[in-house]
Design a protein around this nucleic acid. Structure first.
Lengths: 233, 233
DNA sequence: CGTCAATAAAAAATATATTTTATCCCTCCT
DNA sequence: AGGAGGGATAAAATATATTTTTTATTGACG
């Protein structure tokens, strides 16, 4: 299994580009020159174009006809809107998971929670940057939380919104001094969920998402990176 | 304005293909041979591939690595799930529109309602098929209903879900004898909305969507078109 | 007579070449 | 001197050619 990471070039380019976008290694608003990307990933025009098209539909890239592509811009207003919708969708997923989730779901959840609690948020060598492993464990935990939900559509929408919010998190976390204990919040959500207390769990999850957004909003000004043409790596 | 319908070939191919998919002129589950599509729209491989990629992200097309693309399959289970999620999202949009919508929104809504009421659902010459103008007016009415909503993300999700449900409607409407008066249901939603009665409006909208789904489910068996390789036009 | 393998054909994936479009800069006219 | 128009350059959009992969068909062997 996992015989080959990249089944084909296009998929590889898509995933690589997507990862760079989500981790904000490519900054929001930045122009995406196709040939530059071809060189970076050593694939052909077609592959990059295809990847770009898919990412456009996902809202991670915006296309301007005859003008090329750019990384989707971000803004405080968008983050607020995004969070509001996320709260609605994520709590819907969670309530449903609590309603119909089985033991396998619970098992996966406690496993993801454990892994997250044992993964350091920042790595000692570079405290300014978020730890890539932590980001992954964090995503896995929130995914595990709703995995019991039996609605493919709900989960699909949740995924889209989570990915979008990931960009804001990556961009701002290095700046935001986290006084709160995120660990405790996750723990609280976990316990209420395992206790099948939908009201409490949904409330805690909503508060968790809103708290994160509030911190991100106060920590960062999104005006200075709106349409930056320059600022290469 | 509207100087040129197709700004570029790719966009043209995308829109044409999308329209065929939504109207079920291309049946769900059907394999999408790239060269066939190139010929039909008289564009190049790249353009079709790009269009296909975008549609994949939208959930209208599924991609099988090294095996090509096919129109996204449909099923009774998917329709039920889709409807459940739609009810949640559409009512959220509507409540918000009722909350913050201004006079322009109201004006657009009554205009769309009027247009819908004056457009025949089926055209006399071909009663078996749905009238294309009606489908458009119907989409416009439901869009106008939520246009007052100030959340771009909510509206975006709503759009995705509406398009998905459109496929089921198109496929089944020719079969389903509509005894109920859809007109009245639309009228009821309109009146409650203009009266800013969010509870009633949301309830009527939910009932409207669920009623439609119920009819579609009872009228059609989705088993016979799951993965049909054959059955050309 | 059935099954496995090999080969051929078809279609997808990829790369490259060509055309079109936009932007920037320079010149010319007001 | 400032603005408008035209030409050059760079990048995106499109078309075509090539390679790789998959599937179907045929033949041989068990």
């Amino acid at each position: 299994m996992a015989r080959d990471i990249t089944l084909n070039r296009t998929q590889g380019a898509y995933e690589a580009l997507r990862a760079e976008l989500l981790s904000c290694r490519i900054l929001p608003g930045r122009r995406l020159k196709i040939q530059e990307l071809c060189a970076r990933f050593s694939v052909s025009l077609g592959a990059v174009r295809e990847a770009l098209s898919r990412l456009t539909s996902e809202g991670l890239v915006v296309a301007e006809p005859q003008r090329g592509f750019r990384a989707a811009p971000i803004s405080a207003a968008d983050l607020q809107d995004l969070t509001m919708v996320r709260v609605e969708i994520e709590t819907l997923c969670l309530r449903r998971a609590i309603d119909v989730g089985d033991v396998n779901w619970e098992a996966g959840l406690v496993a993801a929670s454990h892994r997250l609690s044992r993964t350091p948020e920042r790595v000692a060598s570079d405290p300014a940057r978020i730890n890539e492993d932590w980001a992954e464990a964090h995503a896995a935990f929130h995914q595990a939380l709703v995995d019991g939900c039996d609605s493919p559509w709900l989960l699909r929408l949740r995924g889209q919104l989570y990915d979008q919010s990931e960009r804001y998190r990556r961009l701002s976390v290095p700046l935001a001094r986290t006084e709160r204990n995120v660990q405790d919040e996750h723990q609280g959500i976990l316990e209420a969920t395992l206790a099948r207390d939908a009201e409490t769990a949904a409330g805690l999850l909503a508060a968790h998402l809103q708290a994160t957004t509030k911190i991100l909003l106060s920590a960062t000004s999104y005006d200075d990176m709106q349409g930056s043409e320059d600022a290469d790596d």
